[in-house]
Design a protein around this nucleic acid. Structure first.
Length: 819
RNA sequence: GCCGCGGUGGUGGAAUUGGUUUACACAGCUGACUUAAAAUCAGUGCCCGAAAGGGUUGAGGGUUCGAGUCCCUCCCGCGGCACCA
């Protein structure tokens, strides 16, 4: 018999599918559009990471399933090829990123063709293509026109050894992800997009989208909405006052001092007597801002004091690096008794503490605090507010001192400028006469020049600043001498709108075509990594909302459904080059073929949980596909020796087993298993539990080997298996003499009547412990169940002449006798 | 520290609304085929016990006729955020 030879059959179908553009959708004509999106990869020079494949196949199975359910599934792919990753790798290799990216994307494409996903290759995009980044620049201009792109001086993270600015996400616990050196804070003039204007909408809309719950939670935390009051503390004997923000106005009577951020603007104006010391402290705190430990330091502003507006007490004013300048008003009231940070600070510097919330109320004695009590309770030591609940007191006290209700967000504006080379230049021109002038839309793209020396400069300028032909331009307004902006934009800007471009990738004169976009968007299903839960997914939502407000889109949430997949690890540890536990897809294609690789990846565990790759395990899946192959061989090969080819169930090993099998081997029984399999596979694919769907198909194959079956029984298997193993199923479909493609075969329906067993086994427990099993008809009434249980030989034996005190029966589930 | 997820055989993992713990695989062991090996096929498959039986889902407690599943306390692992007042 012909052996399963994946290399041969996969090559045959792969080439045919590419030749026929088999999976290409009709962008302008399809009637049942379904947009199935996966997060596009950054094309590393090492080739596809097995983790990429894991995610892509997970998404592709969903796409293929929807396709078989009758939808026109658009599954595009592209390359997120700009950015610091590619650039750093190019630096390391000493190859220009442009050449490197060309090589990497070619290699990626080859590998992606091998894996057999239903990509619409005509719609491929690459963010480094001027035809793409032209529109990235255009998006920036739209923000600029709307007043939502602005430039201002801001602190950024700087790695002294890599001599470059780092993106926030490249700073891990205050250290550079590449070289592990401590990053510094540096003030630079930067471009921001005003995402904070959308904070509330970004938060509110979360209620109405179908996303993985923990992704939504991560976004909520990142946006970090908090409501409270702005309250003024007058400075004693002066015209000044310090405004603080607090969410706990109920603790105002317990505020025993005030703390300002060292960057607070009022510090230079206040009549302080120890100015010199203060300056020294500020300089010191500036330089070691990013240190790891949370040990708080501070210094008192001598010569002044503030008045607590609630009880009119004079309290000291301090500055400390534990107060964040950018949040709230850059100043806080310190309540050591009810805030752990204040508690620690007060302890260190011997500042007073006053308890005003008591959890034992109305008992007179409140427990002595060993740490701050941050929970709710009733007020004490708060004059006329004593006795009311802390939640109620927030508003009452806040209002009584003239506090202004205030909502603050953790979310900051999005810093998009980078002093790097490998990105789209920000389309702005600076003219001495006209000031900041945006590049006209007709002049886009502002091409990224080919620069031999693309190393970061080590100054705060991008390498582009040294390219005179690039920098010097005529002002678009007055035609006078002007200079270009030399910063490029962040990669996250490239990826924040790519899904809008895919369907319109063929359009030359517009970022996205209105009609096409109406047909395909918003995205029906988006599957991607949890690591983008906040950044990318937040930015994409922001861009979409903004474009809706610009009337350039007619929806404001880009992804109807989002599901995060888990992380693929190998034998319990992260897969990485430094660990030397790389899994090479090319070797696996060679050894087992794409179908086995696909199916094994999905067999590991539920997609959302990630998987643990084990080299040994893949053989089991390969064996399974070999057995599927064998089933069809037996159908199609002229009769040889049926008994040795696996109708083995007919010759059971023992007489006992034979009795049990007589029934299970009936044709009727196979039909039942078949319909149960259809049900299980369908339901499990829908909830992305591919592992159990595969297990069900394995069990079905085992049943086919043990039972007499018809070609139709195998066909059903092939259709169910097609999303997982597209090549072998197509080949076998053809060999079974079917017309057309298995991938166009309609997804089978199951018959609920057939899935139900007519005779079922019900466990009988005594005191909750399994003691016997009885065979009864499906849906046997509770009373009859108990009767049958009591009649069981085994139960009679155990009970003897005892009578159960209590009997419990649940239809089709269990009988429990209490004695 | 806070938030989220998880802890079930030697391993990856199964287990509807609380109802037979360990489906489906991997590794192991036994056997068949083979000169042999590989491949394939069949069987076996938690722990204690000779057996009857008993124990077992990170630990301890609770609710229940019945808990992997629900509640409380604690331990461990992973991921994210990290002085956001």
């Amino acid at each position: 018999m012909e052996q399963y030879n994946p290399q041969k059959i996969e090559k045959k179908w792969r080439e045919k599918w590419i030749r026929d553009a088999r999976w290409q959708v009709d962008i302008k004509g399809d009637k049942k559009p379904y947009y199935n999106l996966m997060m596009f990869p950054y094309p590393s020079a090492e080739g596809l990471h097995i983790g990429n494949l894991y995610a892509f196949v997970g998404s592709d199975i969903h796409g293929r399933y929807m396709r078989q359910k009758g939808y026109d599934v658009f599954e595009p792919i592209g390359f997120d090829a700009f950015g610091i990753h590619s650039e750093n790798f190019a630096l390391k290799k000493g190859i220009h990123p442009r050449e490197l990216i060309k090589k990497s994307t070619d290699n990626f494409r080859r590998q992606l063709e091998y894996i057999g996903n239903i990509y619409s290759w005509d719609n491929i995009i690459n963010t480094t293509d001027p035809e793409y980044y032209k529109w990235t620049q255009w998006i920036f201009l739209k923000f600029y026109e709307a007043g939502l792109a602005y430039k201002k001086e801001a602190p950024v993270q700087w790695c002294p050894s890599c001599k470059t600015v780092l993106a926030n996400e490249q700073v891990i616990s205050g250290r550079c992800e590449r070289c592990d050196s401590v990053v510094e804070s540096k003030n630079l003039n930067q471009w921001f997009l005003k995402i904070t204007d959308y904070a509330d909408r970004l938060l509110e809309n979360l209620k109405n989208i179908d996303w993985s719950e923990h992704t939504k939670i991560a976004q909520r935390n990142w946006i970090g909405k908090s409501t409270g009051y702005r309250i003024k503390f007058p400075i004693f004997n002066s015209q000044f006052s310090i405004e603080i923000f607090t969410t706990r106005a109920d603790t105002l009577f317990g505020a025993t001092y005030i703390v300002l951020s060292p960057k607070h603007e009022l510090i230079s104006q206040l009549p302080i007597t120890n100015k010199k010391e203060i300056e020294t402290y500020i300089n010191k705190s500036e330089s070691k801002k990013q240190t790891k430990n949370n040990e708080k330091t501070g210094i008192e502003l001598k010569g002044i004091s503030a008045i607590n507006p609630a009880n009119k007490e004079e309290i000291p004013v301090w500055i400390s690096d534990y107060v964040v300048a950018e949040y709230g008003t850059g100043a806080v009231m310190a309540v050591p008794a009810h805030d752990q940070r204040d508690f620690e600070f007060a302890k260190k510097y011997g500042l007073p503490s006053k308890q005003v919330i008591c959890q034992n109320y109305p008992e007179k004695i409140c427990p002595v605090l060993e740490k701050a009590y941050e929970g709710e309770g009733h007020l004490v030591g708060s004059e006329k507010f004593n006795g009311i609940s802390s939640s109620e007191a927030r508003e009452k006290i806040g209002k009584s001192v003239g506090g202004i209700p205030q909502v603050n967000y953790h979310l900051r504006d999005w810093l998009i400028s980078r002093q790097r080379y490998w990105g789209p230049p920000i389309p702005i021109i600076y003219c001495d006469n006209c000031g900041t002038v945006p590049v006209a839309e007709k002049d886009l793209p502002v091409l990224l020049p080919y620069v031999e020396n693309f190393q970061p400069t080590g100054t705060d300028k991008s390498p582009l600043a040294a390219v005179e032909e690039f920098v010097n331009v005529k002002c678009p307004k007055c035609a006078g001498r002007a200079k270009r902006e030399t910063d490029v934009s962040d990669t996250f800007l490239d990826s924040s709108w790519y899904f809008l471009r895919y369907p319109s990738s063929g359009e030359k004169n517009i970022a996205w075509d209105k009609k096409i976009t109406e047909r395909w968007l918003p995205v029906d299903m988006y599957i991607g990594g949890q690591e983008h839960a906040v950044l990318h997914l937040m930015y994409a939502r922001f861009i979409t909302m903004f474009m809706r407000d610009q009337k350039l889109l007619n929806f404001e949430e880009p992804f109807k459904k989002f599901r995060a997949h888990g992380l693929l690890v190998k034998e319990g540890s992260k897969i990485s080059k430094s660990k030397g536990n790389i899994v090479n897809p090319d070797e696996l294609f060679e050894a087992f073929g794409a179908d086995t690789l696909r199916t094994y990846l999905m067999f590991l565990s539920p997609l959302a949980e990630g998987g643990d790759w084990q080299d040994e395990g893949i053989r089991g899946v390969h064996r399974f596909l070999g057995r599927v192959w064998g089933l069809v061989q037996r159908q199609t090969t002229p009769y040889q020796d049926k008994s040795s080819t696996g109708q083995a169930g007919k010759q059971p090993a023992s007489a006992e087993a034979s009795a049990g099998r007589q029934e299970t081997n009936s044709k009727q029984n196979l039909q039942k298993i078949k319909h149960q399999t259809i049900k299980k596979v369908t339901e499990d694919i829908e909830r992305l539990h591919y592992n159990t769907a595969i297990a069900a198909m394995m069990a079905y194959v085992n049943a086919l080997y043990e039972n007499e079956h018809s070609p139709e029984d195998i066909e059903t298997l092939l259709v169910l298996l097609a999303p997982f193993a597209p090549h072998i199923t197509e080949e076998l479909w053809e060999r079974l003499g079917q017309k057309g493609s298995v991938h166009d075969a309609v997804w089978p329906e199951f018959d609920a009547k057939i899935t139900k067993q007519e005779i079922i086994t019900v466990p009988v427990q005594i005191n909750g412990k399994l003691r016997a099993q009885i065979e009864v008809e499906n849906n046997t009434e509770e009373g009859r169940l108990i009767k049958s249980a009591l009649e069981s030989e085994r139960i009679k034996e155990i009970l003897g002449d005892k009578k159960p005190k209590k009997t419990i029966a649940v239809k089709n589930k269990v009988v429990n006798l209490v004695i």
